[in-house]
Design a protein around this nucleic acid. Structure first.
Lengths: 200, 200
DNA sequence: TCTGAAACATACACTGCGTATGTCGTATAC
DNA sequence: GTATACGACATACGCAGTGTATGTTTCAGA
């Protein structure tokens, strides 16, 4: 595998990236069912042939869009957690960043509304688990290690936390733009109440 | 409007009901996108013409299925609440019945998984609100009136409760058959914790 | 320079929705 | 009692959109 790519390969990767970007916009604006691959291809002056060359099918294209969004989200969240030293503070910073991302119309709609449709519930659940669950569990484990959290069974606690965050994400994604601050505060309060119950 | 229906009208209503029943089975088994109106019609020895005579389109047929499921659910839940005198007991009885219903594969899949796809998130949300939110608010109001619940702002409390119940419904719908008892217990615990925080 | 393969484009089959039109039986008006 | 209108479907068609099969071009390596 040569570290310096050939021109052909550069072009190819560029069109693939462009397809993902165009698909992101289209899916975010018209939903999964509402966008045709024809339109996506046309957006980058190509045809559906290009799409089917790079991706197995429509779902596969969506999966690529989804993966990119989730990877970027995890990067930002991980970064936020790392910028603060205090365990509590860093955990909250991570949560705040996550809620921020869910307020973004593109991320919110694609990950929390379209993804279950496009990928099917089962696969969507698996993906969510893959990206976020480990992070949640690890964060909780650190809190317990540091004595910031009562030492409760890790797996159930992580699972409930994971679910609540998911609910918040969905609620934010489905909320209208002007309702988002309110919904966010609402869930911040709920999560706060829950956490106070299990604080060390 | 004659109280005794003509034979014609009886036949017509019978086929409409049969269509809804067949659609319920098909949608529950293969999902909204995965069932064709052709198959639904064939199930009752008719053609798609019959479907389009009784319903404006595929979504409209699903809406009819959805309405029937939700109406029946509300009937059962209301009945459960009415069978017990004590406010706490009756509220819990209603919740238990709701969770029961969500464990039913047909209700769970159609209402919590397929409906957002078929109706779109906005309309689905509205429908859910129409059927269940009033009930939740009313139940909470009674609990507060009876002094069983701390007198907190009704609307936010009802909204959070509503959301948590929705999450539970989704989680149950998406859980595998053998996981359902565990998931149900998990959410019962979460809801229990939340309620303990706001008990009078 | 020649060849093979990658990167697309073109063409086609197929499914499934919605609509327009046809047909048959039944209720109603006269 | 017969004519007529209307309701309850069936039939036929257009159309969009996915997936697939088959070109065509362009670059990279021998």
């Amino acid at each position: 595998m040569p570290s310096v790519k050939s021109r052909r390969e550069q072009y190819s990767q560029a069109t693939k990236a462009a397809l993902i970007e165009a698909a992101t916009r289209r899916f975010a604006e018209h939903g999964f069912a509402g966008t045709s691959l024809e339109d996506v291809a046309a957006d980058i002056q190509a045809t559906r042939g290009a799409v089917y060359h790079h991706f197995a099918n429509k779902t596969s294209l969506f999966q690529a869009v989804f993966d990119e969004l989730e990877t970027e989200m995890m990067r930002q969240v991980t970064e936020s957690r790392a910028t603060v030293a205090d365990p509590w503070q860093s955990a909250f910073a991570a949560m705040e960043k996550f809620l921020d991302r869910c307020c973004d119309p593109v991320y919110g709609r694609l990950v929390w509304q379209e993804a279950p449709i496009a990928l099917g519930w089962g696969q969507w659940q698996e993906c969510e688990e893959k990206y976020a669950y480990g992070f949640v569990e690890q964060t909780l484990a650190e809190l317990i290690d540091n004595g910031a959290l009562r030492p409760l069974p890790l797996e159930p606690a992580a699972r409930v936390t994971f679910h609540i965050l998911g609910t918040a994400g969905m609620a934010l994604a489905e909320a209208s733009e002007e309702d988002k601050p309110k919904v966010r505060a609402e869930y911040a309060e709920v999560i706060g109440n829950l956490i106070n119950g299990i604080r060390a």
